[in-house]
Design a binder for these strands. Structure first.
Lengths: 340, 340
DNA sequence: ATGAAAGCGCTAACAT
DNA sequence: ATGTTAGCGCTTTCAT
C-alpha cells in the first residue's frame, strides 16, 4: 500500500511551491497557462486527490450541508431530500442526512454532531417547537434554513407550503360536494403544519357557517395514529360524512381503518388528505389531495441556504411560501349520506 | 459573534494541557477522576465542541461513511438508506448520501468527492459493471461494501438478496397457477440483479419443461421501461398469460400499461414483481412479490463495513446473501386464459 | 497520570 | 505570476 500523495508531492514533481498547486486546484489567484499544465500533469501522474479535511480546517469551509428530517422513509421527505441533493451537488456541496423521528433528543444529538463536523449550513425540519437546536447552531455561526415547518416565535429563513390555504381549499371542495360533518385528523399540537392545516379547516367551515360542526383530532403524523383516530371519529353519532388527514401517513391510516370497518369511500365517507404519493409508486391514484411540491421545496431551500452562507442575500430572513395543488380524485365523491 | 472555543481554551480554563482535554473527550489514556471533572466543567462553561476536521486530519479517521445508491427516491433504496443511517448512527458514524441515477459518470464524480472527504468507508450500489470506482477507492485504502448488486469478476464484501431463488419461486408460483407463457420484463444487461432474476426465471421455466416459451425483455429499472416493454410483450401472439417485473418501478409500469390497454389483472394477465412497497404507503397491497429485506440489508452492510474498517473480521471477503420472501396477493390469480 | 513537541495537509496573508 | 511563512485544531509520539 503506497503512500497517498499530498500537495507537497505534487509541488515537488511539478517544480513549484505547494501554494501554486493549491491555486490550480481552486482556480484562484493567477497561474500561467504553462505552470498550470505542469501541475495538472503532476496531479494526474501521482493520482493526487486534495484532502478536504485540511482544506476545511484552514479555510473554514467544508462544502458540506446537512439535511435533518423526521423520517427519510416518508416519500414527502424523500422527495425533499432528492431536491436538496441535486441542488447541493450542482452547487458543489455534499449532504449529510439525519432522521430525528420527531424526537427532540435525537435532533439535539445530531445537531451537536453537525457542529463538530463543521458543516457550512443546515436544512432543518424541526422536530419540536423549541428553539434549542437552532440557537446552538446560531451560536456556532452555522446558518439554517427551516423546511416545511416554522418554529413559533423564531425568525428564520424558511421554505414551506401554504398549509392554511391548502387545507382551506380541500375543505371548500368537500363542502361544495355537500359535506358538512367533516372531521380533521391531524398531527401533534405545536407543530406548525399540524396547526396551520387545522386553521385552514376551521376557516373553511366558518366561511360556510359550519363552525359548530368542527371536529378536530390531534395525534401524530403516523399511519397508526390516523387509523386509531378514525375509529374514534367514526364512533361519534352522527358520524362524519368526510375525513381530512393532514399528511400522507395519516390519510393511509384513515383509508385502512375505513376499509376494516367496511365503510365505503367515497360513498359512505369521503376522504381527502395532504401530500401526494409519487406517481411512480401508485398505479391508480385514488386520494383527493393538496399536493406539496416537495422536490422544489428541497431545491429552493438549498439555494437559499447557499446564498445565505455566501452572503448573497439581504440580511433579513427570507420566507418562501409555495402553493399547494388541489388534485381531485375518487376518494371525495358527492355526499350520499342523508342528513340526520 | 464571539470566538468559537478550541481545545486550548478549554485546557487553559481547566489548568491542564490540551492533550488532557483530548484524552477526556476520547476516553483514551489515563485521566484522574478529578481532572476529568475539571475538564468537563470547562467544556460545559465554554460550550466547547471538538472540531472533527482537525481530529480527522490528525487521526486519519472521520467517522463518516458514504452511501451511494442509484436513486434514493426508490422506496427500496430509501429503506436501505434508513437501515444504513440507523446502524451507522448507533456505531458513531454519520452518512453522506449520493444518487447516481445509474450513471457511471455521476458515480465516478461522487466517488472522487468521497475520497477527497476522507470518508472511512463506502456502501455502494454499483451503477455499472465496471470496476473503476471500486478500484479508485481501493487505491486510496477506503474499504467498500457492495449492496444489492455485485460487480462481475470483482471480489468484494457484499450484502445482497438471493435474486435467483426469489425469481425462481415467483415463476414456480405462476406455473402452479397454470401459467405457461410468462414474460419477464427486466432491467439492463450486465447488472447482476437484472441478470440473476432472468436466470431464476429461466431455471423455473426449464424445470417445468417450458424453456421454449421464455420471453425476456431487457430495458431499464424504470416505470417507463416497464410500461413500454409491456406494450411490446402484449403485441406478440399468443400473448403472455403472466408478466414478471424485476423491480418495483417496472411492475408498476406493467400494471399501468395493462390498465391502459384494458386488460384485467389477474384474470386476463397475471402479474408478479420484485420488491414490496412499504405497508405505510399502500392501503390494499395488490401485487404478488418477492420482497427483499431492504432495511436489514442496509443495517447488515453497515455493520460489515464498520467491522471491516476496524479489522474485526477475517481478511477474506464476506458475502451476505439474504432470502427474499414470497408474498402472494391478488395480482397472481389462477390462469383464466385458454391455451391456443 | 500528565505534558511538550511536532506535524497531519492545506491555504490566508503577506511578500517579491 | 509565484513563493515564504505561519497556523487552522487536533492527536501521535515520546518524555517525565
Amino acid at each position: 500500500m503506497k503512500k497517498i500523495p499530498n500537495i507537497n508531492d505534487v509541488a515537488k514533481r511539478a517544480g513549484v511551491a505547494p501554494i501554486t498547486v493549491s491555486r490550480v486546484n481552486n482556480s484562484s489567484g493567477y497561474t500561467s497557462e504553462e505552470t498550470r499544465q505542469r501541475v495538472e500533469t503532476a496531479i494526474e501522474a501521482l493520482g493526487y486527490v486534495p484532502n478536504t479535511l485540511a482544506r476545511g480546517l484552514r479555510s473554514k469551509r467544508t462544502n458540506t450541508l446537512a439535511l435533518v428530517v423526521t423520517d427519510i422513509t416518508n416519500p414527502f421527505f424523500t422527495l425533499i431530500a432528492r431536491g436538496v441533493e441535486d441542488a447541493a451537488s450542482a452547487l458543489g456541496f455534499t449532504v449529510i442526512y439525519c432522521n430525528t423521528d420527531e424526537s427532540e433528543a435525537k435532533e439535539e444529538k445530531y445537531i451537536n454532531i453537525l457542529v463538530q463536523k463543521q458543516v457550512d449550513g443546515v436544512l432543518l425540519v424541526p422536530a419540536c417547537s423549541n428553539s434549542k437546536s437552532v440557537n446552538f447552531l446560531h451560536s456556532n455561526s452555522i446558518p439554517i434554513v427551516l423546511i416545511d415547518r416554522s418554529i413559533p416565535g423564531y425568525q428564520a429563513d424558511l421554505v414551506r407550503c401554504d398549509s392554511e390555504n391548502g387545507a382551506y381549499s380541500l375543505i371548500r371542495h368537500l363542502i361544495k360536494l355537500g359535506h358538512d360533518r367533516i372531521a380533521i385528523i391531524t398531527g401533534p399540537r405545536g407543530i406548525s403544519t399540524s396547526e396551520d392545516r387545522v386553521s385552514g379547516y376551521l376557516r373553511a367551515l366558518s366561511d360556510a357557517g359550519l363552525e359548530k360542526l368542527a371536529r378536530v383530532y390531534y395525534g401524530t403524523f403516523t399511519q397508526t395514529s390516523g387509523y386509531e383516530l378514525t375509529v374514534k371519529a367514526l364512533d361519534v353519532i352522527p358520524s362524519p360524512t368526510a375525513l381530512f388527514g393532514t399528511n400522507n401517513f395519516i390519510s393511509i391510516g384513515i383509508l385502512k381503518a375505513l376499509r376494516d370497518m367496511d365503510i365505503s369511500v367515497p360513498d359512505e365517507t369521503a376522504v381527502v388528505g395532504f401530500d401526494d404519493l409519487p406517481t411512480s409508486m401508485v398505479v391508480d391514484p385514488f386520494l383527493t389531495v393538496a399536493a406539496q411540491p416537495a422536490y422544489e421545496m428541497g431545491q429552493k431551500a438549498t439555494e437559499l441556504l447557499v446564498n445565505r452562507l455566501n452572503n448573497k442575500i439581504p440580511v433579513e430572513y427570507q420566507e418562501i411560501i409555495l402553493p399547494t395543488v388541489l388534485i381531485e380524485r375518487k376518494s371525495s365523491g358527492p355526499r350520499r349520506v342523508p342528513s340526520q
